[in-house]
Design a protein around this nucleic acid. Sequence first.
DNA 1: GTTACCGGTAACCTTTAGTTTACTGGTAAC
DNA 2: GTTACCAGTAAACTAAAGGTTACCGGTAAC
Lengths: 120, 120
Amino acid sequence: MEKCFKKFDEKTVEKLIQTVGDALFVLGGKWTLRIIIALYNGNKRFSELRRAVNGISARVLSNELKDLEVNGFLKRVIDSEGFSVTVSYELTEYSFSLEEVVLALSSWGEKHLETIKKSL
Amino acid sequence: MEKCFKKFDEKTVEKLIQTVGDALFVLGGKWTLRIIIALYNGNKRFSELRRAVNGISARVLSNELKDLEVNGFLKRVIDSEGFSVTVSYELTEYSFSLEEVVLALSSWGEKHLETIKKSL
DNA sequence: GTTACCGGTAACCTTTAGTTTACTGGTAAC
DNA sequence: GTTACCAGTAAACTAAAGGTTACCGGTAAC
C-alpha cells in the first residue's frame, strides 16, 4: 500500500513539479479556465459571459479577456455588419489543447465534492 | 474549424464550469500540487520538501502542509524510535486520485512552454 | 424623454497570498 | 563551546488578485 506508490523517480518528480507549475501559472487563476469553458459551446458576448461565469465582475472579466487574447486562447470578434456593432469572443484552436486538462480537473472535482459530502 | 468545436451543450458547459471551479478551489494554489508531487517518490522531511519545492518559504510550506493534512492529502508521521525524533510527510491514498490531473497538467504545461519558446 | 441593455473603464478598497527577518529549543558534529 | 541543521513559529510587511461603485457613449424599446 505504501511502496507501490513510489513509481516516480527523482528526475521525473522534478520535471513534474516544473511542468505542472508552468501550467498552473497560466491556468491556476480563479477565472481563466471557467471563461474558456464557457466559450466551449460557441461564441459569447461580454454580457453573456458575465452570466455564464457566475460571480465574475465586469472589471475582472475585462482583464481576463485581454490576457486570454494576448496568450492566444481567444479572439475578439467585431461584427459591424448590422445596425449596431457587436463584439463577441471566440476560442482559438489552441484553447482546445486544454480539453484533457479540463476533463481531468472536472472529473476529479466531481469526485472530490462527493468525498467531502460523505465525510460530513 | 469553428462548428466542430461546439461539442458541448449548455448543461455540460455549466457543469464543467462548476466542477473545474471546485477542483481549482482546492488545487489551484501555487504550491499545493507541487508539494504533493514532491512526495510522489517517497516520504520527505520538512527541510527536504523545502529543497524539493524550490522557492517556497518555511511559513508557506508549514501552512500548506497543515491544510493538506486537514484535507486528507497527507499524513504527518512522527518517528520517535531513534535517538532523536524525526518528522516526515507521507501521502495518503487520496492524493493518488490526482494522478490524472497531474499528468494532464504536466503534459499541457510542457507543450505550452514549447509553444511559447517557438513564438519568441 | 426615460428607462434599460451593451461593452466596457477608472478609481478605490479589501482580501488573500506570499515574503522577509528573526527567533525558538533540541540534536549533533567538529 | 561554537557552528550548523532540524522543524518549525511570530510578527510585520509587500504584492497580487479580486470586489465595489460609479460612470461613459451608444443603441434601442416603450
